[in-house]
Simulated assay, not measured.
Amino acid sequence: MSIHPTAIVHPGARIAEGVQIGAYSVIGEHVEIGEGSSIGPHVVVEGHTRIGRNNRIFQFCSIGSEPQDKKYAAEPTRLEIGDGNTIREFCSFSTGTVQDGGLTRVGNDNWIMAYVHVAHDCMVGNNTIFANNATLAGHVSVGDWAILGGFTGVHQFVRVGAHSFCGVGTVLLQDLPPFVTVSGNPASPHGINSEGLKRRGYSSDGIMAIKRAYKTLYRSGLPLAEARAQIAEAAQAAPELQLFSDFIADSGRGIVR
């Protein structure tokens, strides 16, 4: 371990080998930090927070703070951060609330830029990118490989599908299906994230099937129920569509359309 002499680390904190903690950082009693992670200067890690291996948390972040929820009554809710994440300056991650599962979770290998806020009870997958000032309200879920452009705002309880892409300044008030690219306030669809899918190894046939499903949903003029039924039928022959089909079938808030 390498702990700067000005850092304040509670004796009850569990700090693994190879962890670096910078000047003036504060580590609370119920914090666990995994091997190889680095905590920059002036970082506060508090609450019941578990940080995995090989994370880099830069200066002035607030990790594991109380949720910004007026119903919160000091219950011992949690924050879990996986492995290999980069969390840049001035980010704030809150613990969960008992009104949900009591847990906020961030997965593995996420690239999170400055001033990002992850509110209580959010569930963030793996390999996502959050550009500067992206903000998640409470109870939001974000699928693997999703990209949120700078100043994206996501309303509470909204789901962001895997491999989706939000342009700069997007405001999401409804669920964003997997693979779809959106922008605007409120968000409107602008095709699929075909370039991202190519980079992640999707075949040409798979991408074409997703494009056809997108046209069924957004350009055919069909009522939503009929579009869902056609996409579910197409997914039987194109496994790449199953994620898309399941997501739009399960949407509780309605989808961006």
Rank of each mutant, 00 (worst) to 15 (best):
residue 139 H to A: 11
residue 105 R to S: 10
residue 69 D to R: 01
residue 74 A to R: 00
residue 104 T to M: 00
residue 78 R to C: 15
residue 135 T to Y: 14
residue 120 H to D: 04
residue 124 V to E: 06
residue 74 A to F: 03
residue 106 V to A: 11
residue 137 A to L: 00
residue 82 G to D: 00
residue 126 N to T: 07
residue 68 Q to H: 11
residue 126 N to E: 08
residue 71 K to N: 04
residue 141 S to N: 15
residue 109 D to Y: 10
residue 133 N to V: 15
residue 103 L to Q: 02
residue 108 N to H: 11
residue 105 R to A: 15
residue 97 T to R: 01
residue 87 I to T: 01
residue 90 F to A: 13
residue 75 E to S: 02
residue 116 V to H: 02
residue 123 M to T: 02
residue 70 K to V: 10
residue 136 L to A: 06
residue 116 V to A: 03
residue 115 Y to P: 09
residue 75 E to K: 01
residue 81 I to N: 13
residue 80 E to A: 12
residue 125 G to S: 06
residue 86 T to A: 09
residue 131 A to S: 06
residue 136 L to V: 12
residue 127 N to Q: 15
residue 70 K to Y: 03
residue 136 L to P: 05
residue 131 A to F: 14
residue 77 T to P: 04
residue 116 V to I: 12
residue 85 N to T: 05
residue 83 D to M: 03
residue 134 A to R: 07
residue 130 F to H: 11
residue 72 Y to Q: 01
residue 91 C to M: 04
residue 106 V to G: 08
residue 68 Q to A: 05
residue 87 I to S: 06
residue 114 A to S: 11
residue 98 V to K: 02
residue 96 G to F: 07
residue 115 Y to F: 14
residue 127 N to L: 15
residue 86 T to C: 04
residue 105 R to W: 12
residue 106 V to C: 09
residue 75 E to Q: 02
residue 110 N to W: 01
residue 78 R to S: 09
residue 86 T to Q: 10
residue 135 T to K: 12
residue 111 W to I: 11
residue 109 D to I: 03
residue 135 T to R: 08
residue 114 A to K: 10
residue 78 R to I: 09
residue 81 I to G: 11
